[in-house]
Design a protein around this nucleic acid. Sequence first.
DNA 1: CTATAACCGAGACGGTACGTCCAGTCTTTGG
DNA 2: CCAAAGACTGGACGTACCGTCTCGGTTATAG
Lengths: 203, 203, 203, 203
Amino acid sequence: MSDSAPAGRRDRGRTRDAAATAAILKAAMSLLVEKGLAGFTIEGIAARAGVGKATIYRWWPSRGAVALDAFLDAVQPLVPYPEEDEDFATRLRVQVTALVRVFRDHEVGGVVRALMGEAQTDPDLAAAFRDRWLEARRTAGRAVFREAQRTGQIRDDLEIETAIDLVYGAVYFRLLAGHQPLSDEFVADLVDYAIRGLAPTST
Amino acid sequence: MSDSAPAGRRDRGRTRDAAATAAILKAAMSLLVEKGLAGFTIEGIAARAGVGKATIYRWWPSRGAVALDAFLDAVQPLVPYPEEDEDFATRLRVQVTALVRVFRDHEVGGVVRALMGEAQTDPDLAAAFRDRWLEARRTAGRAVFREAQRTGQIRDDLEIETAIDLVYGAVYFRLLAGHQPLSDEFVADLVDYAIRGLAPTST
Amino acid sequence: MSDSAPAGRRDRGRTRDAAATAAILKAAMSLLVEKGLAGFTIEGIAARAGVGKATIYRWWPSRGAVALDAFLDAVQPLVPYPEEDEDFATRLRVQVTALVRVFRDHEVGGVVRALMGEAQTDPDLAAAFRDRWLEARRTAGRAVFREAQRTGQIRDDLEIETAIDLVYGAVYFRLLAGHQPLSDEFVADLVDYAIRGLAPTST
Amino acid sequence: MSDSAPAGRRDRGRTRDAAATAAILKAAMSLLVEKGLAGFTIEGIAARAGVGKATIYRWWPSRGAVALDAFLDAVQPLVPYPEEDEDFATRLRVQVTALVRVFRDHEVGGVVRALMGEAQTDPDLAAAFRDRWLEARRTAGRAVFREAQRTGQIRDDLEIETAIDLVYGAVYFRLLAGHQPLSDEFVADLVDYAIRGLAPTST
DNA sequence: CTATAACCGAGACGGTACGTCCAGTCTTTGG
DNA sequence: CCAAAGACTGGACGTACCGTCTCGGTTATAG
C-alpha cells in the first residue's frame, strides 16, 4: 500500500487489518468507476466498505492517495508489459495499443482522468502518480527505446524523454481533453508518424 | 462572457453591472494564480470582488465557468497567432514556443492545469474549455498544417487531428503530469521530431 | 435569544428565520426531556428541527447555550412570581413550593440538572445560567426578604444572600445530589427552620 | 478501589498491577485539577499514566468511576472528622469550615464540581458519589446532630436530613452555582442562622 | 517445570459527534 | 429589476474519543 515500512515501531499493538484495507480499496474503485471523482468521498468509501473514517485516515493522507492505491491495485495486473523480441515499430504499437485499450475498455480511463484531475490540486498525489504509475510505465518504455537505438532502428542522438512524450503525450491529451476519440486508427497513425520522426537520418 | 444574448426581455430594470463583472473576473484570476484550484471558491471570489454570491450565480453556472472566463479574459490577448509567411517548420516552432512560454511565464500554466483538472469533474466546463480555448487554437493550427500540405512540406494523406496532437499532446502532457520541464530545448526537439515524422515519404 | 443587538449593520441581508429558531428551541427542549444531557447533541437537534447545523452554530456558541435558551423559553411562563401581600412566612413558603413543584412535575428538574451539570464544564454557560435564571429568581426573592426586614419579620442585620442560599441551597442540593426527595414535607420543614433562623432576636 | 472481591476464581493468573492502578489514579487526579472535566478523557489518563486503555476499562466502568476513585483517594485523608466534645455550635462550625476550606484551598472544589456535573449524566456515578462521599460525610454529621438532640441543644422533633441539608445545601449550592464566594464569613453567618433555626422552641 | 490463565502496553478497529467550510438557494433592503 | 448582504439547508471535511478487540509479551498459580 501507500506506506512502505515506517521503520522502528512496527510490531507492538494490534496489527493492520488486511480485510479492511482490501474492502476500502475495493469500495474506492467501485465508487470511482460508478460516479467518477465527484461523489468520491471519504465518507462514501467508509460507508460502502463498512469501515470507520478514521481507519482510512490512519493509512492514507487524502482521498487522492486512496484513489491511486485503488487504481494501481486494480490496474497493475491489466498491463503486463509484453516484452517480446519483435522490431521496434511492432513493440511500440503493441504497447500503445494495449494502454489505449485499457483506458477505453476497462473503465480505467475515467479513473486516470480523475486521478490526474485531482493531482492538479494535490501535489502529493501528483508526485505519487508520477512515481508509481507514469514512471513505472516509462521505465519499461525507455528500455524499448534504448534497445531500438542499440539496433539502429531510431536515431542514437535522440532525446528519449521527449520521444516518449511524443507518443504518449498525444494519448493522454486525448484522454484528458476529450476533443477526439482514442480510436485504434488514431493509435496506428500516431505510432506511424512518431516512428518516422524518430528514424535515423536518411543519409 | 458566458451568456450570449438571452434574448427576449433584455431591457427593463437595472442593467447588468459591468464593474461587478470585471471585478469578479479579476478577483477570480487573482485567486487562481495565488492559490490554484484549491482555495478557489465562489465565496472567496465574491468576498474579494465585493460582490454577492448570487450575482455570480446569476451569470455563471459553476466555478469552472468563472475560471474559464477569467482565464480567457486574461490570456486571449497574450497569444495572438503570428500568421507570418515563413516555412512550415518555422511557423510551427514559433507557435509552439509562444504557447509554452505563455504557460511557463505568465502564471498561465497553473490556470490551464486548474481548468483541465476541474474539467475532469465538470462536463460542462470540459465542453466549454474545448470549444472556447482548444478549438480556437486548433482552428488556427489546422490552417497552418493545411497550408503546409498545399505546399508539399508535409504528407498530403496526413490525419491532421492526429498530427496536431502529436505536437501539442506532448506539451499538455508535460504541463499536466509535470514529469519533465517545459523547456525550450524540449520544444525544439519535439518540433524537430514531429516535422520529420510528418514529412512526405522520401521517395 | 442569546444575542442582544450586535449593533451597527443590523439590517441588510436576509433576516433571521423565526420559524427555524422556534423549531430549534422546541427540538432542543424535547430532546432534553426525552434523553437528558446525554443524547443531547447539536446534530440531533438539527436533525429533529429540520435545520442545518450551521444555523445553530450561527446563533449559539455551544450546546449549553441552546439548552439554556430552550429551558428559559419553556419555563419562564411557568414560574410567575406571585407577589401577594401575605406575611413573610407564607410568601416564602409559596415561592419555594412553586419552584419545587415545577422541578418535580414539569420534567423541568431534569433540565435544570442537565444545565447545571453542563455548566460545571462550560464557564460561559455557567455565567449565562447565573445571570438569566438564578439572578432573575433571586432579584424577586431579595425583594421579599427586604420587605420582611422592613416590616420587622426578620432580622435587619441579615446577610440576605446567605439567607437566600439557606433556603434555596437545600432545594438545589437535593435536586442535584438526589440523596433525598424534593417532597412537600421537606419544603415545609425547610421553610419552618429557615424562618426561625432568620427571625429577629427574641429580646 | 471500585471492585470488591468479584468472587469466584480469584487466584490463577497474573495479579492486578498495583503500580498501574496508582499511576492511573494519580494521572486522573492531576488531569482533573489541571483541565477540569473537559479534557478528562480515558485516552488522556492512559497516556499520562503510561498504561493501555484496556487496563482502565478492566477495572472501572466509566471515566466518572475513575474520577471518583481518584478523588476519594486524594481527599479522604484531608477531611478527618474532628470529633471533639465541644458544644453543638462549635462542632458544626468546625466541620463546615473544614469542608469549605478543603473545597476552596486544595483544588478539591473543582473536582467535586466535576464529579457532580458528570453525575447528572451518569446515574451509576451519581449513586457511587452519594454512597461513598456524601453518605460517608452525612453519617458523621448525623451523629453530631443526634448528640445535640440528646443534650437538648436542638429541637428533638427535628427532621435531621432536612436539617443537614439546611447547612450543607447552601455550601454545595455556592460551590456548584458560583454565584457567591465560599468565604469564611458566609460559613459563619450560615451556621449562625441554621443553629437559631434548629434551636428548641423558646417556650 | 511446564501449562494455563489473567494480566499488561500498545494501538487498530467501527462508530458518533464535533465544529468548520462551502455549495447553491432564498429573502431582505436599497439603488 | 438588479445588486449587496447575508441567512438558510445540506453535506463532506478532518479530528477527537469512545468502548472493543487483537497483538506480543509478562507474571503468577496449578498441576
